[in-house]
Amino acid sequence: MHQLYLLLRGPLALISFIVFIGGVIYQIIWFFNNTKVQEIPKNPGLLPSKKEIKSFYPPEDIKKLTKWEGSVWSTQPYFTILTSIFHILVILTPIFLLAHNILIKQSWGIAPPSLSEKITDVFTIVVLCFGAYFLYRRIFLSKVRIITGGGDWLMFFLVFLPYLTGFLAYHQIFSYMPMVILHMFLGELMLVCIPFTRLKHMIFFFLNRFYLKSEYSFFKKGNRVWN
């Protein structure tokens, strides 16, 4: 069992990081190869200028139209806040977890900043609570259930099982060694799967919303269209 631990801690950890980073780079290159910049004349003459638009509507209406109206912030504000918190925590927790960073220091000599164990423990509990909520949505809400397939369950378990096993290992609820080995395996599996499964929305959320030309492009800066 100790051999397996060393394998997961050493070469397999390194491989999973390489596959993850390589996969992310591959997806970014794929995105830019399959999209192109669409130049738009500054004012083609048919469209009203910004100054003219301002004269049509009162400023509060423009703010409403351009920022919130029609987006998930207006249709589902509470769920949007909750899911934003979840996504932030799911990324921050493993990065700033003390035990992970001690292993990184021992292996590669780099000491990334860490949060206290108490804080990351609370973060993990919050992530697991979100897991239970998302599980409830997938099973009991017809609007989610109707579009749920095998890939979605894979995504669900790939994300939450590393957190669950990590929590159980940290609190030594079951036998520590098998649990920590399972945790390391699942964590590395998640890392490898991010660029190649539905979890790639982690990368493409930013690429799509910042670079693609769309009504809802962040800061209205997106100027790329698909080839």
Partner: peptide, 26 residues
């Protein structure tokens, strides 16, 4: 491959809302 099946798009469709949240209008 990107669609996360989150169903957050549902209320943005007026037909979904007009049909009492029938998920086939999502």
């Amino acid at each position: 491959s990107l669609c996360a099946r989150c169903s957050m798009c549902a209320p943005s469709c007026f037909l979904y809302r007009a049909n009492n949240g029938d998920p086939t209008y999502m």
